[in-house]
Write a protein that binds this DNA or RNA. Sequence first.
DNA 1: ATTGCAAGAATGTCAGACAATCGGCTTGAC
DNA 2: GTCAAGCCGATTGTCTGACATTCTTGCAAT
Lengths: 223, 223
Amino acid sequence: MPPDLNLRISPRSVQRETVDKLRLAIFSGLFQPGSRLIESQLCTQLGISRPSLREALRSLEAERLIEIVPNRGPSIPALSWEVATAIYEVRELLEVEAAGRCASRISPEQLRELEKSLSAFEAAASSNDSLARVMTAADFYSIILANCGNPILEEVHRGLVARISFFRGRSMSLEGRAQSSLSEMREIFESIAAGDEKAAREASKQHVLKAKAAAKISMDSGL
Amino acid sequence: MPPDLNLRISPRSVQRETVDKLRLAIFSGLFQPGSRLIESQLCTQLGISRPSLREALRSLEAERLIEIVPNRGPSIPALSWEVATAIYEVRELLEVEAAGRCASRISPEQLRELEKSLSAFEAAASSNDSLARVMTAADFYSIILANCGNPILEEVHRGLVARISFFRGRSMSLEGRAQSSLSEMREIFESIAAGDEKAAREASKQHVLKAKAAAKISMDSGL
DNA sequence: ATTGCAAGAATGTCAGACAATCGGCTTGAC
DNA sequence: GTCAAGCCGATTGTCTGACATTCTTGCAAT
């Protein structure tokens, strides 16, 4: 048995359930950016006590998914385009590196998983369910990041992508964006499958750049 | 007046004070890796109530500075060399990028600040105060990261460096490491001052690689 | 030596309370 | 009519105390 295999079962505590639920609520756009979150309301809605809720909020604050201004309480941060750009730039840095590493080290079975997730996105791209598109696309990246051989790269990437989930949902609804996204992702996949590190890097870079451009369009038009 | 200048003074809440104090305590190595943190003890030591402490602990957990296992409570994670390697690799990615950008965009006065921090490190390098060495070195990087034009790059970097503060303290105590570190940092500074982006990238890369090697030595010898 | 059990310690969670602070509304002055 | 001042409800920051659940440790028994 590998010594680093963690056999511990993790009990679901109220705090963790709450973090997960709120995170999902934020992803799905339940709260408007800039809107305040009222502790007492959330407590009744979630059916938990204030101390538990406040612990959960502190976790989300550290993840930068919410902001907590002293004496004003938690709110959904309004993401400026400046910050969004910065996030896309770092995301490019990380994803390019991950795709490159992935190309030279992914296992055959994980490669099949990657292909499956690409198919799933292909199906979602033709549908009207924009949440499904975002989710399946996220799966695709997850597999790449999980196979780049660097858990920190994966962790940091997840944190960043979470913060631009707002844009992802909107730009994936853009006319034609899902289809072009699909072809870009297919290119990434082909490069990785061929073990071509350089090509994987380049394809990955192009993909992020276009995602960023799409996000800008959706922001300019939508606001 | 720039419209994005945040004039809001942030009241110091007990929670934030606690996070800062604990973070500093962790940096300075007050807690052994792997050791558990007992809530009741911390409460009396810090003179605060359990809810406030628990909120602070959740923040630190999200920063990955502590681990909280359900029903076992918080503890200082023992950093494996595998994870440390992963952190150094991502740190390299970020720092190289930051140094490169910095070279082509830093302002003259910030460049002077950078020079001052280099001098401060030079002084610390000759002293015996290893905490001062770590702190002044951290200042040097901070200035570079703050002037790379990407706040996210800075934020992510800070989070990663915090997690390897343990190693930084130990490797800075290594015979000769501070001096070689100094010459590497000087090289970075010179490249940035000359506006030579490529050289800044290369110097930065070498610096991180050597820091990583020093960390490995200190780990192998010290454990 | 290993197993099983019991006492103690520590955590997870809640309810309730109160002061400090913020935001909006009313009031009053010019 | 506009603007300033001040009051009031809403909300957050923090604490105390409590209790069930879970973990750890030491000891006894096989």
